[in-house]
């Protein structure tokens, strides 16, 4: 008399594998995902859209690209690389303000909207030509703090007009209260900045005579009295325009690192090894969010493995055993 079918089924390896594979596959329908909490980031991205970001000293797919285009591509990559449940907002920096476009939204469910918004960024959205990085950064930090999120501030660090002799504005917030990244865009050798007319058409580059090279607000620097034509009352900065390299632009990473240290943010270059997602995750506040862990690939792969053993390994194994036994018993 043969044993009951189920016991007979589970009594040998083939039955166990088959029943196991079926059970695992059935589980993909019953428990497709597990609710778990995972560390996720929430940050508002504030991107510099001032003139110096048009400088073409970055590379995108092997072709020269402007800093802004490179930053957009990198940020779209960041949005795609962050795990589901992360949230990104978007703001613009120009002049000395951080202008919020939208509050943080989910990077997976709202990916299309986020990606489209990043792709649509343009320097023509800027409202003024000034680029007072430090002031803008401090406002962006206040904005992120207000939203209760972290900050990603993408800039090349090119202050226009240059900072006065006594230095930039002081950070009045609490360093480290808002965490996040300052991302430096641009190359390290100074290159000319493209210039546009009032209809947005490119008309060449800024020349040395087009931009101020010295900020003459506030007291003059201490060495000013040795300058030609110096007069304490009538010409405290000397009588000649200061020469300089302000019409050329490169990423001011030493300056940005200094700002990062002052405000308690981390610094990363735009082409950080491992991508911005890694740098941001390391610098950001860890927020536990309920996320769903998709179990189906694990269950499905295990079921597939069981079937492959059943069809691929077992028959050959048995055949091999039979051959060995046949040889041993002397055919």
């Amino acid at each position: 008399m043969s044993p009951p079918p189920l016991a007979r089924l589970l009594g040998h390896a083939r039955g166990q594998l088959l029943a196991g594979a079926l059970a695992l596959t059935a589980l993909t329908g019953l428990v497709p995902s597990l609710p778990v909490t995972g560390p996720r980031v929430e940050a508002v991205v504030v991107i510099d859209i001032t003139g110096s970001m048009n400088t073409r000293d970055e590379r995108l797919d092997g072709k020269p690209a402007s800093r802004l285009d490179k930053a957009k591509a990198t940020l779209r990559g960041l949005a795609a690389a962050l795990p589901c449940g992360s949230r990104l907002g978007l703001g613009l920096f120009a002049e000395r303000r951080a202008f919020l476009l939208f509050e943080p939204i989910e990077t997976c469910a709202d990916f299309g909207a986020l990606d489209g918004a990043l792709a649509g960024l343009d320097w023509r959205m800027g409202w003024e030509g000034d680029s007072r990085i430090a002031a803008g950064l401090f406002r962006a930090i206040a904005l992120a703090g207000d939203l209760g999120s972290d900050l990603v501030f993408v800039t090349d660090g090119h202050e226009a007009p240059p900072l006065p002799a006594r230095g930039g504005p002081a950070f009045e917030g609490k360093p480290g209260a808002v965490r996040g990244l300052i991302v430096g865009a641009g190359g390290h050798s100074p290159v000319p900045i493209p210039r546009y007319d009032d209809r947005g058409r490119e008309i060449g580059f800024y020349g040395a005579e087009d931009v101020p090279h010295e900020n003459r607000f506030g007291p003059p620097p201490p060495e000013a009295e040795h300058r030609e034509g110096y007069n304490p009352r009538n010409a405290p900065f000397g009588s000649h325009a200061a020469p300089g390299q302000e019409h050329l632009s490169s990423v001011r990473d030493a300056y940005l690192r200094g700002l990062a240290a002052e405000t308690g943010l981390a610094y990363a270059p735009l082409d950080a090894p491992g991508g911005l997602a890694e740098a941001l995750t390391a610098a950001a506040t860890t927020r536990s969010r309920p996320v769903r862990l998709d179990l189906r690939p694990v269950l499905g792969a295990a079921a597939l493995a069981a079937l492959l053993v059943l069809f691929g390994l077992l028959p050959w194994h048995i055949r091999l055993r039979e051959t060995v036994s046949r040889l041993r018993h002397g055919a």
């Binding site: 476009l101 709202d110 023509r124 959205m125």
Partner: peptide
């Protein structure tokens, strides 16, 4: 200046943000 905030989307969460 004009600013494109969000492209045409059916994600109303994003629109509300």
């Amino acid at each position: 200046s004009p600013m494109a905030v969000l492209p045409m989307t059916d994600r109303h969460d994003a629109v509300r943000a």
